[in-house]
């Protein structure tokens, strides 16, 4: 394939930890194939080479937490034919969306020696709140094989296989014994989007929901079950307010226990 016909890929970073971008670099076996299939036009984490837009595909990591970023994402959208968000920050606001439940000034006063220099928005919002997103890839961080799948799908003009059912499906396909049933360990797998391959139950612990809510997640019933196994409202709030605290489903469930 001549270089000039390769699709141009850009990777963008907003408020995030870089973990999702690193997943791309972590695709050791596939990295050469990725580099062969696309022109990496903008990827500051990996290369200093920059190619001007427009881009065929933009991968966006991170959430919007400053007014500068709120403007920047508009520009990215304008320069990108397809825009895919990668990870919990870009998709749900990330762990930094915890500020949405508090007063951000309290945090800046607490954390920074000179808080007067900090300019930040009161809320951390997902990319989809600001611009049209063509596809969302879940996870904190994303699963590298899912990223390769999404890129392959994009390059071959097909639908990515990233099912929206729960972690339990992957857990069962692997043959793991349910940690909820066999050990009484609270597990968020039944309300959490698949994609990780049920890593946590495989290592004998409960899922803590890093892929965010699955399709038709019944958090009310799961919370009741957690209550029965001795989980307190305070712990429930913490469970729902982590990396995907900003997702509608988890936010509502967490809030419901605050009022009790």
């Amino acid at each position: 394939m001549p270089t000039n016909t390769k699709p141009k890929l850009a990777v963008w970073k907003f408020a995030s930890c870089d973990g999702c971008q690193l997943s791309l670099l972590d695709c050791e076996d596939e990295l050469l194939a990725v580099a062969g299939a696309v022109e990496i036009a903008n990827f500051p984490e990996a290369t200093r080479a920059l190619t001007k837009g427009p881009y065929d595909l933009s991968l966006v990591e991170g959430s919007i937490t400053t007014s500068h970023d709120a403007e920047r994402i508009q520009k990215v959208r304008k320069m990108s034919k397809y825009l895919i968000t990668i990870g919990a920050c870009a998709t749900a606001g990330g762990i930094q969306a915890l500020r949405n439940f508090a007063n951000v000034t309290d945090y800046t006063n607490y954390v920074y020696a000179s808080p007067q220099y900090i300019e930040t928005l009161h809320k951390s919002t997902p990319i989809g709140y600001h611009v049209h997103v063509d596809f969302e890839l879940r996870g904190c961080p994303i699963n590298k094989m899912q990223l390769v799948e999404v890129l392959s799908a994009f390059l071959n003009g097909r639908k990515p296989n990233t099912p929206a059912y729960g972690v339990c499906v992957e857990c069962k396909l692997k043959g793991t014994s349910c940690v909820m049933v066999a050990q009484g360990t609270p597990c968020m797998g039944p309300v959490t989007h698949a994609g990780c391959g049920a890593i946590c139950p495989t290592f004998d612990r409960g899922c803590y929901g890093c892929f965010g809510p699955k399709e038709t997640a019944n958090t009310i019933s799961l919370s009741e079950q957690f209550h029965k196994s001795g989980v307190t409202d305070e712990q429930l709030i913490r469970a729902y307010r982590s990396f995907n605290a900003g997702s509608d489903t988890f936010r509502k469930e967490g809030d419901a226990h605050e009022r009790q």
Binding site: Y165, C168, K172, L173, N218, I220, S221, L222, E224
Partner: peptide, 12 residues
């Protein structure tokens, strides 16, 4: 109201 639609019953 109780069902999580988690698929576990069908898988086992």
């Amino acid at each position: 109201g109780r069902c999580l639609t988690c698929t576990n019953c069908t898988m086992v």
